[in-house]
């Protein structure tokens, strides 16, 4: 069985993990167009190469980032999301109402 290094829990069987999509830059929800937001939410680039991806370790509910080659399935590195995201993004009621 394939295995993946979880930054919190260590080396685990791949069956304990769930893929969560590519890591992409979130546009400003207050200023972006609906098309830009839809592209961020629903679309992926579908390139071949080493990608930054969200992965979930399901038993612990822990989301982290993995750099993985999506053709060879080689996992280059895994790390805590705090390496990329240092601040919390809050959405005001007016921004999420529409």
């Amino acid at each position: 069985m394939k295995r993946m290094q979880c930054p919190l829990n260590g080396l685990r069987n791949i069956s304990e993990f769930v893929y969560g999509g590519q890591v992409t830059t979130m546009p400003n929800p207050a200023t972006c167009t609906d098309k830009q937001w839809a592209h961020y939410v629903f679309y992926e680039d579908n390139d071949i190469g080493v990608m930054r991806e969200w992965w979930l370790h399901a038993p612990s509910g822990y989301w982290f980032i993995a750099e993985r080659h999506n053709a060879s399935d080689e996992i280059v590195r895994t790390y805590d999301a705090s390496e990329c995201f240092s601040s919390r993004v809050d959405f005001s009621a007016s921004e999420t109402a529409s």
Binding site: N9, E16, H57, P59
Partner: peptide, 9 residues
């Protein structure tokens, strides 16, 4: 350890 036992968390 947070893991799986008999395929459940």
């Amino acid at each position: 350890a947070q893991t799986q036992m008999a395929r459940i968390s």
